[in-house]
Amino acid sequence: MTGTLTVIDPGPMTTVQDLGRPGHGAIGVPTGGAADRASLRLANRLLGQADATPGLETTLGGLRVRFGAATRCCVAGAPCEVRIDGAAAAFGEAILVPGGAELALGTPRSGLRSYLAVAGGLSAPVALGSVASSPSLALGRPPLRAGDTLALGEAAPYAPHLAHHPGGAWQAEPTATIVRGPRTDWFDRESSAALTSARWTATGALDRIGVRLDGPPIRRATAYEGKELPSEPMVRGSIQVPPDGQPVVLLADHPTTGGYPVIAVVTDADTDRVAQLRPGDPVRFRAVPPPWR
């Protein structure tokens, strides 16, 4: 018999995530998957299972679940309190939750999204090769609600290569690496310079689609004032600049095309860090050349 996970309280938002569904941009489907892929990967590795095994992504913690049978699991990502039937349990390492016991995740001390990986993974409907949930695009299973029960997959024998990871490398003021372009020439020189010299702040306008930043307004170069960009493809990490000059960093569930020029793109690995920004959190950018130049 396979195990089950029943949601007692999903907290502000909990979704099923794997590493997404690449390859469908041509029909308007972004890759999606865990907003912070590195943390889901880590949680799965600590259980000794495949990186892309489906787990849960919580937003600001608050998740409470009950397992039908004893289940090994692991919490990683935004560091938070972990409790089993009220007793403190370890964050960032494999823990065994007894059958019928309640596992609770507290509100993270820093960061936005914590990940719960479960031995054997979670079952959810597969769409375009993935169980990843993109709520704004109605892709995959909708966000979990109290009372939902998910079946667990068959767990392999527990034999991790990695036993413990404190996950504590959380800089108070993270710096994300960017590559300038594709549309740097649409903006004036001072604005381009400010992108890497200013301290940006995450606003409350954030979700799995993107995060709007507050800082010195990014202005168009004179030659491009009022100009419209024909819709062009976007990637995770694209820093779009709408006419008001406040940039938006696109995340996992970004639109595949967009009409606002992109001044720079956050490197693939660092989009995971940007996805952990909470409203009011600072972030800085550091430019590197593209790998092919």
């Binding site: 690449p22 390859g23 469908h24 941009g25 041509a26 890759t31 024909p230 819709s231 062009e232 493809p233 990637v235 595949t256 095309t257």
Partner: peptide, 13 residues
């Protein structure tokens, strides 16, 4: 991984 077209562009990921 992906080839995506825009109005006047092609993205190769």
């Amino acid at each position: 991984l992906d080839v995506v077209e825009g109005a006047a562009t092609v993205l190769v990921r």
